[in-house]
Amino acid sequence: MFEFLIHVSTMACLFGLLALSLNLQVGFAGLVNFGHIALFGCGTYGAAIAFANQWGPVAGLLLGGAAAALLALAFARLGRNLGADYWGIATLSIAEILRTFATNEQWLTGGAQGIHGLPMLFGSLPAPWGPLATLGLCAVLLAVCWALCQRLVNGRYGLALKLLREEPQLASSLGYDLAALRRTPLVISGLIAAVAGFLFAHYTTFVGPDQLYSAETFLIWSMLIVGGLGNNLGAVAGAFLMQFLLAYVPFVKDALGLPSEFVAAMRLTLVGGGLLAFLLWRTQGLIPERIGGRHA
């Protein structure tokens, strides 16, 4: 049970990083990204390709980060010509194209079988110290990224992002460069997602295209909506809550004496039903965005 708790906490930290990074785009800058999982995939495949070519984990991290930054810049470039809704669809399309690429380009990505056998970051430590050290690293990185996001969104830059989200024409008329404003949160968000992907790859020791389904993006969206869009603490809280709820579904199934096939259905019901409940009755999420501020 202790090891299971460590595992769920580690996954919660990784999803917390993803929720934080998506929140920077959606919650603060109003960039409705439906292809966020592709940025995470840059991190996972960066780690896997570096491993397959024996370049070492540092090269994997750099490769994943560089790929995520480039992809984020490509997303931003698309945003110059598309409205917000069309941009969201375009990001979803790009993520699907990249997943299809990962599935078919076996020479680079291992194809549908993926790449196995990545080393755990603290694999030389005996259990439970290895997983505990990984959890510690993930928790520290989550805290660092949370502090970075807080610093970004609480100052005048955060105000600029909110202006971009709510009144883009007004922001332009105040001298803000909207293209640059879109680029920065996308790149920072991409880097955070890539770090999460890198850690995930070395934690699960396997990278494959099935990890990049768009359903994963919508799971992160659900975490944000439940936790509170536009609030960094809310994003992390949503990720932890959803992760723990999903992880403990099998225990509920056992307690209620339900058959095993109910687990997947219960998980889907939990995500869909919870999302619907929050959209209907608490649109601001568990920890709402702080309105106003001392920005100027």
Binding site: L159, L163, E167, L170, L174, G293, A296
Partner: peptide
Amino acid sequence: NVFATLSVSENIRLGAR
């Protein structure tokens, strides 16, 4: 043409940021 959730003074200062 105003940022409704900010105060009047914050709105004005935005113009000279």
